[in-house]
Amino acid sequence: MISWLRHQKYALTAALYRLRMQPVSSLLTALAMGVAISLPGGLYLSLANLGQVAGKLPAQPEISLFLDTLASDTHRQAVATRLKQPDIAEAYFVPKDQALAALISSQGLTDIAAGLTQNPLPDAWVVRPQLSSREELARVAHDLAKLPGVAETHLDSLWAERLQAGLSIGRASVWLLAGLFAIALIAISGNAIRAQVLARRDEILVSRLIGATDRHIRRPFLYLGALQGLLGGLAAIGVLAIAGTILRQPVSHLADLYGSSFQLIPPSPLEIATVLVLTTISGWFGAWLTVTRALHQVETAH
């Protein structure tokens, strides 16, 4: 066990040493990995931000609630009370006269309106529920429709569904891209490690002659791959941080124009940790895939 730990420590030290000995090529590899990973990472962050924007838009999904023309005052009062409950974010009353006036002015229906003997429109409420998920909207609309004195509710959820559909395509693309770029990452790491193995031919041959096992020879390269992956992940986060800094000003300007206080959200520590762990594993895996083959090449070249 102690000997095992010693071997790990030795391999890690050797890997760090090799990384330090070739700062430029290590840096370039890390940058290549970083750029590759920043693409799905950036898309993921954009979607997270877009979702946030969708949640804060003034044009929230709304439920239109139409009262029965014959509804009693008690029923009207009961509806008003129900709309003060916590699952409703906002509700405002639209009297039928106001609705008619709005209709006439916006649609240019003055002639038709003049022919009406009485207002055919019902009194209405425009209701914005607290939560904007599809299920929640449907539940609240259904709930309200059952109240006495309510003629019908109309749920304007089409745009919300479209947004959801759009976001889910976006999320699927994130995973697709992440998968593709993970493969690229493994290839980049494998290639870097292969070059390292061939560059350290002499050391490998001498180590074999003085009793090194293949596992001992392989281990520093695996650590090297993992470290390269980790550096690549850090580079990706650096790329995204720079992109975020550049975009912050224009985004908040645009938000201002819409009268919103929206700010770009940075990734959470958990998301950062996930990226670093995944890139480290990819780097290790790329090294593992190539190192055995490369060691064999060294042997036969000898």
Binding site: W4, V206, A212
Partner: peptide
């Protein structure tokens, strides 16, 4: 000789012990 020229005399000599997993 088959020495390794990317490390000093001490590191060359200590290599077999590192390989065998001795305490540094």
């Amino acid at each position: 000789h088959k020495l390794l020229f990317d490390r000093n005399v001490m590191e060359n000599v200590v290599l077999p012990l590192d390989i065998a997993g001795f305490d540094r």
